[in-house]
Amino acid sequence: MKKILFLDRDGTIIKENNKDYQIDSIEKIHFHKKVISSLSKILKKLDYELVMVSNQDGLGTNKFPEDKFWVIHNHILGILKSEEIIFKSIHIDKSFQNEKSNNRKPNIGMLSKYLYNNKYNINDSFVIGDRLTDVLLAKNIGCKSIWIKENNDHYKNFTEEEKFYYSNSDKKILEKIIKLKTNNWEKIYQYLYKIRNKLIYKRITSETNVEISLDIYGNGQYHINTGIGFFNHLLEQISVHSLMDINIKIIGDNHIDEHHTIEDCGITFGNIFNKLLCKKGIERYGFYIIPMDDCLSQVVIDLGGREQLSWKVKFHREKIGDVPTEMFYHFFKSFSSSAKCNIYIHSIGINEHHKIESIFKCFARAIKMAVKKNYTNKVFSSKGLL
């Protein structure tokens, strides 16, 4: 299920105009420091959709005409879009506080389509805003809050509306909802990155005990122990060249042979990859060619849901390192079946070590390309699903 960042605009993305609380000219637009770079990284590396939710008091009245507002608003969106920061939807309430509109934050009238839709993971979503009304919006929709303030004391300089809500709120509940208090967007990104979803998958049989954790949009960090030295080395190449964070621990019956360990690693790795990957908004296809001295390897991958391996590789040695060469096909076949993906692998060359190492590196680069977010949330399939 998709997680959402419900973002306020004024005071959160751009700085608040404290004189009349209206951003109605170019001169009044001042973006928060690092907000653009941080939102860009959030969309690239984390699994969130952006939804803007803003109160614009009296929009459409003589004091705040709509023609001035929309020119400035669209200019702000254009700047963000130039950095591939695109909002799934934008919700703006025009009412005053005394009108008690159900659409005015912290009321939830504008957001009902997200609250009763099992496509969205509201519990792990956030409201990010600079007002107490944003914190209360998080409470009312059942998610968490990141509270932005220009000063260290988040309870000073309340508006009259905030004072009203604060005096009628349960302070303990508010503190539980607020997961971070900061006006530093880099810290917001770092916090969201730190808590990003990781999945740990275990597969236990009478032959092996496999435990794998995976972060598809990681930094290329790894800790791998399969009990097979050269196989460890090859799996490390996947992490380094795909930037996935991979932890693998396997206790297997290597005293018999390597078959069960390598097969079950491929099965488990494919399963966790398939469970963790959100296919909405990914490029789907990945392809890469890598030379390594005398060898040239090519890997093409389609994450479209079909499981098929085309293996055009010949080895002329029984083993490379401590791994039987026949097991390389078996690893990729097991991964393809569990991850439900189509993989084409072709390699030519003389040095067998170079051949298989370039295959694993190429496989990693193809995955990196295929899982890349395209920022449109489109599914690249005429069927509408992968």
Score class of each variant (00 low, 15 high):
Met1Arg: 11
Met1Val: 12
Ile4Ser: 07
Gly11Val: 11
Gly11Asn: 13
Ile14Ala: 08
Lys19Ile: 15
Tyr21Trp: 15
Asp24Tyr: 08
Ser25Gly: 09
Ser37Ala: 02
Ser40Leu: 00
Lys41Asn: 06
Lys45Ser: 05
Leu46Trp: 04
Tyr48Thr: 01
Ser54Leu: 06
Gln56Trp: 07
Phe64Val: 06
Pro65Thr: 09
Leu80His: 09
Glu84Leu: 12
Glu84Asp: 14
Ser89Tyr: 04
Ile90Ala: 02
Gly109Thr: 05
Asn123Gln: 11
Asp130Pro: 08
Asp134Leu: 11
Leu136Ile: 15
Gly142Cys: 06
Ser145Leu: 09
Trp147Gln: 07
Trp147Cys: 04
Asn151Trp: 04
Asn151Leu: 13
His154Gly: 00
Phe158Asp: 01
Ser169Gln: 06
Ile177Pro: 01
Lys179Ala: 02
Asn183Asp: 15
Arg196Pro: 01
Leu199Tyr: 11
Tyr201Phe: 15
Thr205Glu: 09
Ser213Pro: 03
Leu214Ser: 03
Asp215Arg: 02
Gln221Thr: 11
Phe230Pro: 00
Gln237Ile: 01
Ile246Lys: 01
Asn247Ala: 03
Lys249Phe: 10
Lys249Gln: 12
Gly252Ile: 08
Gly252Pro: 01
Asn254Met: 05
Thr261Ser: 12
Thr268Asp: 05
Gly270Ser: 02
Phe273Arg: 05
Lys275Gly: 00
Lys275Ala: 06
Leu276Asn: 13
Ile282Asn: 02
Glu283Thr: 07
Phe287Asn: 07
Phe287Leu: 00
Met292Gln: 09
Gln298Trp: 03
Glu307Thr: 02
Lys314Gly: 05
Lys319Gln: 13
Phe332Cys: 05
Lys333Gln: 14
Ser337Thr: 09
Glu352Tyr: 01
Met369Lys: 14
Ser381Gln: 04
Ser381Arg: 08
